[in-house]
């Protein structure tokens, strides 16, 4: 078996960047975090490079042994040109050529993809999807997205958004989605949409279990919902039940996998 080689990974999110040094056999050597909440890319990108170089130095790995860099960001993005376009939760990142910047800084090839595809690849290569040929990775958090492995390959589609299953429309007269359309899966079951719905419906119910658990209307989130469900609160159970029904409706409509991995 060939000697494992080192890779630097950058997972750019709305609040932080996860920087990691991983060997090709799946060994996670070390990792660190770079804050990214409401920061300009001009500040964050040099900090990412610095963090990556520190990980290499601390592990005693010379820069010339680094094989490649991988980076993922939220959509929308220009996959072919390696550019972050303008993700809704990273408003300061507009048309940032992140792939080529990292390639130049580290002097190696850099590869780029969206975060749902990247997470799907991670679960496929090192997690619950190891060895399967067909897999749908579903991420159900603030939004809903997927990474699709079909016949042993990542399915990207013409514009790299094959995994945007959160915007399948379940009801054209449904609630307004962040994307501007109505009735998307994400508008029914996304964490942000559910929280906003509860805040709206409980605005005049300060004594409800959910508001009490959250401490205030503004603090209501998915964790509050699950806590209230565990406490058998009837309103929370009804919201949860509706969300699960939409998840059940949507899951089989996403690209048919032989194995599905979920993360929340």
């Amino acid at each position: 078996m060939a000697k494992p080689f080192p890779i630097l990974g950058f997972d750019v999110g709305g609040t932080k960047v996860a920087v990691s040094l991983v060997l090709s056999d799946g060994t996670l050597v070390a990792s660190s975090r770079v804050p990214n909440k409401e920061r300009e890319p001009d500040d964050v990108l040099p900090a990412m490079v610095s963090a990556g170089k520190s990980l290499l130095a601390d592990a005693g790995i010379p820069r010339e042994e680094l094989k490649a860099v991988g980076v993922c960001t939220p959509s929308p993005l220009d996959f072919k040109r390696g550019i972050v376009m303008a993700p809704p939760n990273m408003k300061m990142w507009k048309h940032v050529p992140i792939r080529d910047f990292l390639a130049e800084e580290f002097g190696v090839r850099a590869f780029f993809d969206n975060d749902a595809n990247a997470s799907g690849l991670a679960e496929w290569l090192f997690g619950s999807g190891v060895g399967v040929q067909d897999m749908l990775y579903l991420t159900m958090s603030t939004g809903i997205g997927a990474g699709v492995i079909a016949n042993g390959h990542l399915l990207r589609g013409a514009t790299c958004d094959a995994g945007e299953v959160g915007h399948m429309i379940l009801d054209a007269n449904g609630p307004l989605c962040n994307c501007g359309l109505r009735g998307c899966w994400e508008a029914f079951s996304g964490g942000r949409a559910i929280a906003q719905r509860m805040q709206r419906e409980l605005a005049d119910k300060p004594n409800s279990t959910i508001v009490k658990l959250a401490g205030s209307l503004e603090n209501i989130d998915m964790k509050t919902l699950s806590d209230a469900v565990l406490a058998n609160d009837p309103y929370a159970c009804a919201v949860w039940d509706g969300m699960m029904e939409r998840n059940a409706q949507s899951s089989p409509s996403a690209p048919s996998p032989s194995s599905a991995a979920t993360s929340s």
């Binding site: 993922c72 595809n117 991670a122 993360s263």
Partner: peptide, 25 residues
């Protein structure tokens, strides 16, 4: 089809970026 939870949990972010590069390679 089987529905299973992800295995990487809180380590997912640590593997995501590197997996992009490994898959490309």
């Amino acid at each position: 089809c089987s529905i299973v939870p992800g295995k990487l949990g809180s380590k997912l972010g640590e593997y995501a970026g590197a997996s992009v590069a490994l898959y490309a390679l």
